[in-house]
Simulated assay, not measured.
Amino acid sequence: MSERKPYKTASSDEQRALIEPVITAWNVLGAGDRGRGAHGVRARERRRASHLRDKVAADSDRLEKALSTRGSRTR
């Protein structure tokens, strides 16, 4: 039986050693989504998007309030 050739995209041991900490950190941060594949990534991104929408809405509410009180002072 012939020896298998590595894939063209396979990482060398040196490359793997460089990216291993990044992969480990990614797995730790996504521990709640582990095992769900792409569905876990999508869920995490939905949570982030929801958080950002809430933050933008809160910031715009504060800005609107600040501008309305500023306008009433100049009258």
Rank of each mutant, 00 (worst) to 15 (best):
M1G: 12
M1S: 09
M1P: 09
S2P: 06
S2N: 01
S2E: 03
S2R: 09
E3N: 13
E3S: 13
E3T: 13
R4M: 10
R4S: 13
P6V: 02
P6F: 01
P6C: 04
Y7Q: 12
Y7R: 09
Y7S: 11
Y7M: 01
K8C: 00
T9D: 09
T9W: 06
T9G: 11
S11R: 11
S12G: 02
S12L: 07
S12D: 00
D13T: 03
Q15M: 05
Q15N: 08
Q15H: 04
A17H: 09
A17K: 11
A17C: 00
L18A: 09
I19K: 15
P21I: 10
V22G: 13
I23M: 02
I23A: 08
I23L: 01
T24S: 00
T24Q: 08
T24C: 05
T24I: 12
A25H: 00
A25F: 09
W26Q: 11
W26I: 12
W26F: 13
W26T: 11
W26C: 12
N27E: 10
N27T: 04
N27R: 12
N27S: 06
V28W: 09
V28R: 06
V28Q: 09
L29H: 00
L29C: 00
G30Y: 08
A31R: 08
G32C: 05
G32Y: 06
G32R: 01
D33V: 01
D33K: 02
R34N: 02
R34W: 05
G35N: 03
G35F: 08
R36Y: 12
G37D: 05
G37A: 05
G37P: 05
A38N: 12
H39N: 02
H39Y: 11
H39F: 12
H39P: 04
G40F: 12
G40H: 08
V41L: 01
R42S: 06
A43P: 05
A43K: 03
A43I: 04
R44Q: 06
R44E: 02
E45D: 14
R46S: 06
R46A: 02
R46Q: 06
R47Q: 00
R47I: 01
R47N: 07
R47C: 05
R47W: 03
R48H: 10
R48W: 13
A49L: 04
A49V: 06
S50L: 10
H51W: 14
L52H: 05
R53A: 11
R53V: 13
R53Q: 15
R53G: 06
D54N: 09
D54P: 03
D54S: 09
D54A: 10
K55I: 02
V56A: 10
V56L: 10
V56S: 06
A57C: 03
A57I: 09
A57P: 04
A58Y: 13
A58V: 05
A58E: 15
A58C: 09
D59T: 14
D61R: 14
R62I: 13
R62M: 02
R62L: 10
R62Q: 02
L63V: 13
L63T: 14
E64V: 06
K65W: 12
A66P: 11
A66C: 07
L67C: 08
L67E: 02
S68K: 04
S68N: 08
S68H: 03
R70I: 10
G71K: 14
G71N: 15
G71L: 15
S72R: 11
S72V: 12
T74L: 15
T74N: 15
R75M: 11
R75G: 15
R75N: 15
R75S: 15
